[in-house]
């Protein structure tokens, strides 16, 4: 559909809150609770496609219109979260586990879990895009949607899959983020800037670029705290973004 989805961050928060509901309130074990949350988030994303994006496609809405709608959706989701669960910080209520010491570094079990899940997700996305027919069709659509239509591909169906998978991954991201920090209604909004920075840095439209960009932005932000005050974290991310775009205007892997 070719637009920047400003509601991406709030789907991330939604995934985290749904996990919170199932694990902390309803007492489901954390892993199945997360799985349920991911499925529900994907389902809501598909509903949004039927209710909002599909009618917009039929009207051939421009990308500016779509961006503004997505900002509206973002605000709606964020306030829905505040309405349902309040504005304060929440936690999943998991038992605290001992960290693992590696020399002078302490890494918590949760952090190891987050890294593992992130790596697995990257491989799954790679497999999806390169090996499955639906994944190849997603790439075909992003290349040339008119030719995809002319090839008889049911474009609406492929877009629904893209929403479902994209927002399911957002939910996973939100759940993991909540695991190492906390959950609050603004988490999605605050994640949005570094996310856009990562995508632009990697090259817009390139999933592998987004992965590389995410790692670069994330590492740069955290490592900078060793020499600079933490308040400058985001500034460092954007400084790197500017430098890279000077050298490669279309991003690291952009074509």
């Amino acid at each position: 559909m070719n637009f920047a989805n400003f509601a991406h961050g709030d789907f991330l928060a939604l995934g985290a809150y749904l996990t919170f509901v199932f694990s902390a309130i309803l007492g489901v074990h954390f892993i199945p609770a997360s799985a349920i949350a991911v499925v529900i988030t994907a389902f809501i994303a598909v509903c949004c496609d039927y209710a909002i994006w599909k009618p917009m496609r039929e009207k051939s809405a421009g990308s500016l219109t779509l961006i503004i709608i997505s900002i509206g959706l973002a605000l709606f989701l964020r306030n829905l979260i505040i309405f349902l669960w309040g504005p304060d910080i929440k936690r999943y209520d998991l038992p605290v586990k001992r960290g693992i010491e590696l020399g002078s570094v302490v890494i918590t079990q949760n952090q190891i879990f987050v890294i593992m899940v992130a790596v697995i997700c990257m491989f799954l996305v790679h497999y999806l895009l390169k090996r499955t027919t639906i994944g190849k069709a997603m790439r075909a659509l992003s290349d040339n949607i008119d030719l995809a239509k002319a090839s008889g591909i049911d474009v609406d169906r492929v877009i629904r899959y893209t929403w479902a998978i994209g927002m399911a991954l957002a939910a996973v991201g939100g759940i993991l983020y909540g695991l190492i920090t906390n959950i609050n209604p603004n988490m999605g909004w605050f994640m949005l800037l570094p996310m856009f920075a990562a995508v632009i840095l990697g090259g817009i439209g390139s999933p592998y670029g987004a992965m590389v960009g995410g790692v670069v932005i994330g590492l740069a932000q955290e490592l900078s705290t060793a020499i600079l005050p933490t308040e400058y974290k985001q500034a460092v991310a954007f400084f790197i973004l500017i430098v890279v775009l000077f050298i490669r205007p279309r991003g690291i892997l952009g074509s």
């Binding site: 190849k136 069709a137 075909a140 290349d143 040339n144 008119d146 995809a148 008889g152």
Partner: peptide, 22 residues
């Protein structure tokens, strides 16, 4: 189509596969 008649970022094989999507 006259123009834009391939999927440029896909391989030859993947382009042909898209032709048989249905």
């Amino acid at each position: 189509p006259q123009e834009r008649n391939v999927f440029p970022s896909l391989t030859v094989m993947e382009n042909l596969e898209m032709g048989a999507f249905i």
